[in-house]
Design a protein around this nucleic acid. Sequence first.
RNA 1: GGCUCCGUCGUCUAGCGGUUUAGGACGCCGCCCUCUCAAGGCGGAGGUCGAGGGUUCGAAUCCCUUCGGAGCUACCA
Length: 536
Amino acid sequence: MTDIAKPVRVRFAPSPTGKLHIGGARTAIYNWAYARATGGTFVLRIEDTDPERSTDENTQIILRALSWLGLDWDEGPEVGGEYGPYFQMQRMDTYAAALERLKERDAAYPCFCTKEELDAKRAKAEKEEGGYAGYDRTCRCLSHEEAQARIDAGEPHVWRIKVPLDRGAIEFDDAVYGHVSFPSDVMDDMILVRTDGSPTYNFAVVCDDANMAITHVIRGDDHLSNTPRQILIYEALGYETPTFGHLSMILGADGKKLSKRHGATNVEEYRDRGYLADALVNFLALLGWSLDGETTIISRDVLTSQFGLDRITKKDAIFDETKLNWMNGVYIREMDAPTWVEASKKWIADACVQGANVEDGVVVVPTPEQGADPLPPAITPEDEGYAEAFAAALADIEEDPSFYEKLYPLVIERLARLDDIPAKLAFLFWGPNVQLDEKSVSKVLLKEGARADEALRACRNELAREDLPWEAEALQEACRALCEPMEMKPKFMFQPLRVAICGNQVSPPLFESIELMEPEDVLARIDGVLETVFKA
RNA sequence: GGCUCCGUCGUCUAGCGGUUUAGGACGCCGCCCUCUCAAGGCGGAGGUCGAGGGUUCGAAUCCCUUCGGAGCUACCA
């Protein structure tokens, strides 16, 4: 059943009719991981035979997405290989040759039935006979002479496979589903070559997989029903069939097939929303496959050495973003400071730009009831001037990342996604201004009996001391020392300070944040709050 | 309609006839830690294994039926 001797050759064959979908990404990961785990070859082939929907742009997007995921292919676009070309449109001669081979073997025949005739027959059968059983083989009965004469006369025709009449049930052992059997009487003489001479999907796939010596066809479950058809084509061609392995579908949260309705469905969107490739690969690998049922964090090394077809589930899986968010956080926390800055620079730059544009002094921000974004951006990518400011900030980060590495301990344990960064760090760049979250003002600063103004004044005095080292621990000790004499719990001392400086009752560690800011800015913010909120 | 496949906590899964009072992870709840939020530690709730029949001393695990879901049924891929 399994060829131990034959080196594994697997392929991922997307059609560039769209971007790289989450489901496609998982298929690619499984093929890639299987190739790596077995020491085999991972082939990438672009199935661009649908001229209506295929675009070069989509091809580029798919290649870029695969590269971003870190799924390197051994043969395919950009890297070449001895079984090329790897674009179906460039393999037309091979399909023509395959058709010749079929003719020689008397395994295919021309069909002159028009699309209209077929549609009519199908409609009639569905209405009157309770179901269409497939093409009725009208043209299969034509003599060779008559068929040839009509071809010579220029009559339009397609080429159909001549399914052996005595072919029994079509059975195969799927690497995932196990033994599968299809009755042969439901297999009609499907079209292999269209009127315009182009190959149909099933024909092209078989030709390519055979010609590229693919040993294991690992693909989506939506092809399970195509497999018996393709087996028939392999047999007609006289080629050995590969091992098939079908992957269950990935569904949206509502249990329906994943689509745009469910939000992000292509991998570039995940990259742009601050997900890490390692996390996405890990998560997707586990959507339908398990290492041992216990392990959830699986490194690439483990994946590419331990992955196997035997632990793939048959059950459809629902794509649950909350678990991906957790896993992404795990991977973010594994990064060291320089790596984090490098991976996060575009979001850090965004935080800088947003922060730098708060210039109105103390502002009380109206908070939506849900308390959504605590810090609405003062400037968005759509606004004028954003692009220039962003580019400048990015250049600054790249030129000297050392300052930005200091932001790392502030947020590294608080990020589920990299795009959470602007909301968490923009306040550091507000200069002397502070944008106050209304809810925080009412719950902390104006809370009954909180003595927030007292706390602010006391802390301000401490922070203004010339002899105080501007360093987190010293700052904290100075403010903490105020608690006892004032008979105030640290929480009541620090929370008002946090709101006054960070604008929100939730923020990164307070004194570590203050340390990174200019002393005069910090004092200015406190003064601003005292004046505005407490009308002092 | 026909053909094929699937069905274990809300979600991802382990389980392959007895070691299972069905294990782990996410999420949720509580406690601890604590300057907030996280992170971390500890604990908890949550599954009559889609349902109904068998087989067996014993079934989530084997058989049958049934219900639900998905895919295919194109000169799309």
